[in-house]
Write a protein that binds this DNA or RNA. Structure first.
Length: 802
DNA sequence: AGCACGCCGACT
DNA sequence: GTCGGCGTGCTC
């Protein structure tokens, strides 16, 4: 078994296979599957994952592994298998699937260097370039005006060589430690030898005579009340030594978590948890869907089920949508399970993420609470996977590998024979349909634990407001209720559903909208820099003074951004303090949390924000929730827009009156008669489900049909259309007659970065070999892709049609 | 991907 | 003769 099969870090279809390498003697014993290695690949050195150890290879001249990067495998055998499955399922490359399971810092970066091999005089230009150094970054050569040919000659002559470096992004955090170097009695002797003036040094020695263990320098200095120079003096005398020790970053280290104990469950909660506990006991895989209204105590069920799993000595993964991974959520898990919990979300620095991941790898924790990618946590004795807010679209990764965390979770649940819990107040139609069919087991929690009714929802027809002469973005009802709220000292949450809207620039005279010259999309206005930016290609230009079309100076920015609402609010309710939460105010790390804390401490009356405020927040003093534009995403070209609207409205309504104070919700809309708005206001999931299902059936959408989306992009529009047409043709020869092929159709954004984008949508009910056909297409066009800069992407079960 | 190799055409 | 610019095939 002295040969390793390696998946190399070269994301290309032609290298999407294992490569065999000889394992040098010194690595024979320690190298196991799942470790990262550095291997020669052509003239380069690259990183790769060992996926198998074998004793024979069909390949003749094997090269050897250069280095092994890990002492503990970064991928367990289960995860290697899972990687294969993900790659196959999502039609992505093996290396991409494997990389997706690891924290970013474990990715390798590559650099080239020029190494001087001779002391003899090099040509003038090279002497100048090296400037006395033994090696230089290759980039410096590229930046110089020296020709490649000249370099080639020197390389051939052996005067210069190229070195390929594989670097790691890992940054381990270290602290300075201090320890005594001599025995106790020697320290005591030294103490007597010190001069009378060296008071601080004496104190330090005294300290180590009492505590002989190494101590963090910072802590030592504080305890003894001295500075590094004193420590240094003793180090110079050979009595003490300083060294660096690695520490784990703990993003929550300075936080106290109030320990909580299990709550008494309601009847409905008990009924829901019994079958889950049975599955845990029996090591049986099953998918449970908990459909529970907001405030029905889903989280308590999760906590108690996890406790059951921990009691068995097993581990738990909890997935939460990024956006609701709020301090409140983290508190609940940290409060119950303390240091057994690792938290993984995007607000952590790369280093912190790595450390949290290592806590799992080193078995220092038993529970992971995290966003999508936490589904790959390297536990080896998994007892349960929980997906909260399972309907959230953030569980679908939008770049390669385009996996859905729910599917991965269920697959891991099968291999680990453990239960998977999906929880939501508004389950995804797909999930609910499976639950009704008995594929998943359904538990319904219809009562809130505090017995309070859901807040009353008033729908306001904004067309009538307009007719009545109200041209502001606040209806008369909302204004009145806000004023009442402020008088009583209660708080307000205002949500602006910005999806589908953005601040763009439009000419009031001719209606001209400023678009990106490289993408078919309106440029967005950025107030702070006074620039127009493209969100797709980061093209930028200053805001025009006059309309480029008609030269009118009536060119303004448009759209209802949170900034504009804030401005309007301060005009209409000057006494109200407003906290604005959107991408602009929450970009900085921790600012999200800070703003929420301020609001919780009642430092503001109104919390104004985008969707990000709809989830997971729980403020006792909030009695009014206003949705400014409920229908803004209803008209998007997305078959899930009704579902998303229903979910969002239900979610945001749950923010009001969660405690003693009764709550009101005001929903402003231009389409009050739309069923998703009407039924959300009545909290009628069942009717919505039936209604939406019949729509999906009629229009052949999930859950009745599966989808696959093939997108083709090319600089040349004709080429893009033609290729898509060819793809449709090839597919039509293979697929069954119940399968629908749509296309070529332009993508919702038909051009990005000067590339035209066309797509083909496949709607199917039963196509067991579809992946084979799609792979075949990839092979057919592989040449075209490489030679003609064609791009073909496949998205199985797409969530965004772009 | 990224590198070498080879062929071609432009330029001194 | 000297260079750089692509197109092509290969990487254990």
């Amino acid at each position: 078994m002295n040969i390793a099969r390696v998946i190399v870090d070269v994301p290309a279809s032609s290298t999407n296979q294992t490569f065999d390498y000889v394992i040098p003697e010194k690595f024979q014993e320690m190298l196991t599957v799942g470790m990262r290695v550095i291997v020669p690949f052509g003239p380069r050195k690259i990183m790769g994952f060992v996926v198998e150890r074998v004793s024979e290879s069909s390949f003749n001249k094997l090269k050897g592994i250069i280095d092994v990067l890990d002492f503990t495998p970064v991928l367990t055998e289960e995860l290697l298998e899972l990687g294969k499955w993900v790659a196959n399922e999502t039609l992505s490359l093996s290396i991409t699937a494997l990389q997706a399971m690891l924290p970013q810092v474990l990715k390798s970066t590559y650099e080239k260097e020029l190494v001087r091999m001779t002391e003899e005089q090099l040509p003038e230009v090279f002497e100048h370039l090296f400037a006395g150094r033994g090696f230089i970054p290759f980039k410096e050569f590229e930046a110089s005006s020296i020709s490649y040919y000249q370099l080639q000659k020197l390389i051939e002559a052996g005067d210069i060589s190229i070195d390929y470096l594989v670097k790691s992004r890992i940054t381990k955090k270290h602290v300075s430690m201090v320890k005594p170097t001599k025995d106790m009695h020697l320290l005591e002797e030294a103490l007597l030898d010190l001069s009378k003036n060296a008071k601080k040094q004496k104190l330090l020695l005294q300290f180590f005579i009492e505590h002989e263990n190494p101590i963090e320098q910072q802590e030592l200095l504080k305890k003894v009340g001295t500075t590094t120079s004193t420590v240094k003096a003793l180090v110079d005398r050979g009595l003490l030594a300083t060294f660096q020790q690695e520490v784990m970053r703990d993003p929550y280290e300075n936080r106290e978590f109030e320990r909580t104990t299990p709550l008494v469950l309601t009847k409905q909660q008990r009924e829901a948890i019994i079958p889950i506990n049975e599955a845990i006991e029996a090591d049986k895989h099953d998918v449970f869907l908990i459909h529970g209204v907001t405030g029905s105590g889903k989280t308590e069920i999760y906590l108690q089920a996890i406790q059951e799993v921990l009691n068995k000595g097993q581990e738990a993964i909890v997935l939460v949508p990024e956006i609701s991974l709020t301090p409140q959520m983290v508190n609940r898990f940290k409060g119950r399970f303390g240091s057994e919990v690792a938290v993984m979300h995007s607000a952590l620095s790369a280093g912190e993420k790595y450390d949290e991941w290592r806590k799992v790898q080193r078995k220092e924790v038993k529970v992971v609470v995290g966003a999508r990618s936490a589904v790959f946590a390297p536990f080896e004795n998994l007892g349960i996977i929980i997906i909260d807010e399972e309907h959230e679209t953030t569980y679908k990764q939008e770049d390669q590998p385009r996996y859905h965390a729910r599917d991965v979770a269920i697959h891991r649940g099968q291999t680990n024979s453990c239960p998977v819990i999906l929880g939501s107040a508004t389950p995804a139609l797909e999930s609910y349909a499976r639950a009704t069919k008995g594929v998943y087991r359904l538990a319904t929690l219809s009562e809130r634990t505090n017995q309070m009714d859901m807040p009353k929802v008033d729908i306001i027809d904004m067309r009538k407001e307009l007719h009545a002469g109200n041209r502001t973005m606040f209806s008369r009802d909302l204004m009145e209720k806000m004023e009442q709220c402020l008088e009583k000292g209660e708080q307000i949450v205002l949500m602006l559903n910005r999806r589908g809207y953005s601040t763009f620039i439009m000419c009031r005279d001719c209606g001209h909208v400023k678009e990106c010259p490289h993408c078919d999309i309106a440029l967005t206005y950025h107030k702070n820099s006074n620039q127009m930016k493209c969100h797709y290609c980061s093209y930028e230009e200053p805001v025009p003074v006059v309309c480029p079309e008609c030269e009118s100076d009536l060119i303004r920015y448009f759209g209802t951004g949170t900034q504009r609402v804030e401005e309007a609010l301060t005009k209409l309710l000057p006494e109200a303090e407003v906290i604005r939460m959107d991408v602009d105010t929450t970009r900085r790390k921790g600012s999200h949390e800070k703003l929420l804390k301020q609001f919780a401490e009642k430092k503001a009356d109104i919390l104004l924000g985008t969707q990000m405020i709809a989830k997971g927040l729980d403020f006792e003093n909030v009695t009014l929730v206003g949705v400014l534009t409920a229908d803004s995403m209803l008209h998007l070209p997305d078959f899930r827009s009704s579902e998303k609207t229903f979910q969002l409205l239900t979610q945001v309504s749950g923010r009001a009156g969660r405690h003693e104070l009764p709550g009101t919700v005001i929903v402003q809309t231009y389409t009050p008669e739309h069923y998703s708005i009407e039924l959300a206001s009545e909290y009628d999931f069942q009717s919505f489900y039936k209604r939406e299902m019949s729509m999906r059936k009629a229009f052949q959408y999930p859950p009745y049909y599966f989808l696959a989306l093939v997108t083709v992009s090319h600089e040349n529009q004709v080429k893009a259309v033609q290729t898509t047409q060819q793809i449709v043709q090839v597919l039509s020869q293979h697929v069954g007659n119940t399968t629908v092929l749509l296309g070529p159709t332009p993508s919702p954004i038909p051009r990005i970065k000067d590339r035209y984008r066309y797509q083909c949508m496949i709607k199917y009910r039963n196509e067991p070999d579809l992946r084979t056909y799609l792979n075949k297409i990839k092979t057919i066009f592989a040449d075209d892709v490489r030679k003609n800069d064609l791009l073909i992407t496949v998205d199985m079960q797409p969530y965004h049609m772009m």
